[in-house]
Structure formats: C-alpha cells, structure tokens
C-alpha cells in the first residue's frame, strides 16, 4: 500500500529533476542540437509532473492532465520541428550548428 501512495510523489520529483537537468543543459551546452534536446527534456519533466498530478488526486485517475500532456506533446513536436529546421539553416548559413557568442551589444 505504501508504494501506491508514494508513486505520484516519485513522478513529481523525477519530473522536477528532469526539468532542472534540461534547464542546466539548455544554458551550458553550446551545440544547438543539444539545446533543442534540452528543451525537450524540460518538456518531458513538465509532462511527468502533470502525470503525477493526474495520479495523485482522490477518486481515481484525473483525465484532464492527460489531455494537457497530449496537447503539450503536439506543441512540443511542432516547436522541435521548427527548431531543427532553423538549426539546419543556421548551419548552412554560418557553417556552425551553434550560436555565436553574443558579442558587445552594438
């Protein structure tokens, strides 16, 4: 029984952990593919938190967070597709799949 009660908490914790890991990679990594993956890891973290929320309520599983996750996945796929295309264009235009270090602002 104790394990059943704990499960949603584990999902919540892992979700937050994934979110933070993704955030870290997004800031630290320089290759654009890694940055795009990092955003996806952050997204998975949020989805896992939503799953934990769905399982955590009383009276069975709440379907609304599941609907949110499905919509969220659609949004994430579209955003990833745009980001990947843009990355290829940046590579073609500059020769590097990374953002140039932001120089002095002028």
């Amino acid at each position: 029984m104790a394990a059943d009660v704990l499960t949603p908490q584990i999902y919540l914790l892992c979700g937050v952990l994934l979110f933070v890991l993704g955030l870290h990679a997004l800031v630290v990594r320089r290759h654009l593919l890694l940055k795009i993956l990092a955003v996806n890891v952050m997204g998975s973290g949020v989805f896992m938190v939503l799953l934990g929320v769905a399982a955590g309520g009383e009276g069975g599983v709440d379907p609304v967070p599941h609907a949110l996750v499905i919509t969220g996945i659609v949004v994430a796929v579209s955003a990833t597709a745009v980001a990947l295309v843009l990355m290829l264009r940046v590579k073609a235009a500059t020769g590097l799949a990374r953002l140039p270090r932001s120089g002095p602002e002028d």
Partner: peptide, 15 residues
Amino acid sequence: VAAMRYLLVSLLGSM
C-alpha cells in the same frame, strides 16, 4: 541566428 536565439529563449519561457 537571431531567430534561433529568439526561439530558444521563448521555448525556455514557455516551459
């Protein structure tokens, strides 16, 4: 490059 940077910042904000 501007678009890419804009997209990454925006996605971070959205997440």
